[in-house]
Amino acid sequence: MDGFVVKADFLPRLLQQLQENYQVVGPVRGEDDVCRLQPLDEWSEHQEFSLPRISVKKYLFPPNELLYTTKNGTFEPPPPPEQMAVVGVPSCDLYAVDFLDRVFADDPLYQRRRSNLLLVGITCHPSEDCFCPPRDTPPPFDLFLDEERVFSGTPRGDELLQQLGDRLIGEVEIDHDWTCEAQGPPLPENLERRWAANETKSFWEEIGGRCLGCGACSAVCPTCHCFDMQDRIDAAGNAVRHRIWDNCFFPNFALVAGGHDFHPTRGARFRFRCEHKLLGFGVFRGESSCVGCGRCRAACPVQIDILEALDHLREGAIP
């Protein structure tokens, strides 16, 4: 990894350079004061790197993605996506990309999107909702902008820096502290045992009694990756399938043929989500996928907070 001090106009020049080969997107604050990732035409002096409502996940794992179209008895995947560069991704969202990369390691459609996506990270400016876990390794990125310094993380990043060599001043050591200043409480020790001991319903059902089951928390989460598939006939008469975001708060999420529901209450669904975020499923068991961005806390209409669940686990007794 290389690090350089950059000249003042590095960012606008980088954007220009990227626009030659990529569709460039970045965070833009709209008239409604909401920040979203959207196509960037030009570099604005007032460009604000605040957390977008939905992370870069929406480009890697789109809310509604065509999986195939039938053509003469075969199942044709969609044409490959365009090259895209996302500028201004905060480190929490980069760590989330790392997690998704591993979840979808074997998924060719995801990997095709991923290899066509260039990530330009940026030191984040934490909001009052953030609670990042401590980090000692860097997240994935092609370039990372740390105020007046830039780091490259991939050969693609190296190449870009070469092209922008005249905007670089001098090589520097990379001594970035990957732990965000808005550090949250560490995960309690023995989480798995605490979890097993805390199967008691009362806490989860109390939260479930407030929960609207609207799914906003999962919808905005940069690591939530539940999905469903939908089949339909398109206007041309072909059968098509889309992958769409699903949500573990939806009542039919764990419903099986025959009508048995494995998560029959909103409390059970909230517990399931916390389990996914804090303890992980399958091969990820034991790994928290919560990156501490705080989006779910901010999005909940009834102020349900994942930190509340964490506190509950921390304070609970271990047998």
Binding site: D32, D33, V34, R36, P52, R53, I54, K58, P63, L212, C214, G215, A216, A219, V220, W245, N247, F250, A299, P301
Partner: peptide, 11 residues
């Protein structure tokens, strides 16, 4: 809400 959040609307 799910679709509204996906569209990144103001709540």
């Amino acid at each position: 809400c799910m679709e509204c959040r996906q569209r990144e609307n103001l709540c």
